[in-house]
Simulated scan of single mutants.
Amino acid sequence: MKLEFKNTLEESSIILTDFNCGPAQNLLQDSGYYKIVWARDREFSLTVDGYAVQLKQHQVLFCTTLNLLQVPKESGLIALVFNREFYCIRDHDHEVSCNGILFFGSSQPPIVSLAQKDIRSFEAMFTIFREEFETVDHIQGEMLRVMLKRLLITSSRLVKEMQKISQLPNTQLELLRNFHVLVEQHFKEKHKVADYAALLYKSPKTLSNVFKKAGRPSPLAIINERILLEAKRLLLNSHLSAEQIAHALGYEEGAHFSKFFKSHTGLPPVEYRAKKTKTAQA
């Protein structure tokens, strides 16, 4: 199944699919799409950024345009896939408040387990999505955007509840969101908590205290995780040397990057690439 709305003039696109056909599988090779994947009927094994992810029944995975996703070509799941031109998460953050929570909220894409009431809500929304994809008229695109916004708002609330941050004061919640967004924008050149604290007009201590009170990983851990994720992606999905990757991630000396990488993974970059490549070929 692959139901698509496309505006050629705007180059915008949104697709409802189960990835059970060749054209839908081709979407996974396109780096320009956000992907919301729901294991509606049963458990699935997926691959995200080269790592196996077990998605249990009625769990939902939220991937950004940066995540490399591989999905089995079989029925049982349903996904909504859309590009920035159809709905830009950053430009419309005031509408759905999902930037830094649902997308770009950590180095790993969030996975939400749906309760029974949530399953009913998702079933209703995806039923309406299907109806709108099949209703071709001049307001079809706008109706699909309205439904997408509802899905994003509902999902963001679920992620906040899952991460136990829904009850935080709004100022603290916004600080967490803004920090994650800034890390996504600047992790290649800014590696210190003080860099982000300055951008947020806070002291590093204040920033760390807010994350501690919220039960979140420390700001430094989040920065390091994001750098590591990008390093692993480049090692596994590019032909760049470790030295080139080091420079791409803001390290003046390859040795400093290698030491950082080994301290967090147990292996130097070159050995990590060789090991993962060998495992993938086995």
Rank of each mutant, 00 (worst) to 15 (best):
K205F: 08
E95N: 09
Y87L: 13
S13R: 15
V112W: 03
L249R: 00
L228N: 05
R145K: 15
P268C: 04
L182T: 06
G50R: 10
S208W: 02
K73Y: 04
G250H: 05
L68N: 06
Y33E: 07
F82D: 04
V81F: 05
L240H: 11
I15L: 07
E134H: 08
A255M: 11
V159C: 10
V96I: 12
K202V: 04
G32Q: 11
L207P: 08
K275Y: 01
Q281K: 13
K232N: 03
W38H: 10
A274L: 08
S156G: 12
E184N: 14
K262F: 00
F261R: 00
G250S: 05
K35S: 08
K117A: 08
V112S: 07
K56W: 08
T154W: 04
F129A: 00
V270C: 02
V183L: 03
H247R: 14
L175E: 08
E161W: 06
A246M: 09
D30M: 13
T206Q: 14
Q70N: 13
I119W: 04
S75H: 07
W38K: 03
F103D: 01
P110A: 12
R273L: 01
H92Y: 14
P217Q: 15
E189G: 10
E4S: 13
I165H: 07
L16A: 05
S156Y: 00
D30N: 09
N20S: 14
F126I: 02
N7G: 06
Q25K: 15
N209S: 13
Q163A: 12
I153T: 13
E161A: 09
L200N: 11
L158Q: 13
H264C: 01
L249G: 02
S75P: 01
R216Y: 13
L68H: 06
G100D: 08
P109K: 10
A231F: 02
L3E: 11
R130C: 06
K117T: 13
A280G: 01
H247G: 01
T65C: 11
L173R: 11
Q167W: 03
I119C: 06
P72S: 09
S97W: 08
D137Q: 06
V53F: 13
M147L: 15
F44R: 09
R40P: 02
Q167G: 10
A24V: 06
N20I: 00
L102E: 10
E43N: 11
I245D: 01
F86W: 04
L200F: 09
V210P: 00
H247F: 11
N237L: 00
A124W: 10
M143A: 10
A115T: 11
F5N: 07
P169K: 10
S208R: 14
L240N: 06
S12R: 01
T64F: 04
D30L: 14
L267T: 00
T17S: 09
I223M: 04
K117V: 03
Y33I: 06
A246L: 03
T154A: 11
K56R: 15
Q70K: 14
L9G: 01
S106V: 03
K2Y: 09
Q172C: 05
A248M: 13
A248D: 13
E10A: 12
L28P: 04
F62K: 00
A198L: 12
R216H: 15
S241T: 10
I128V: 12
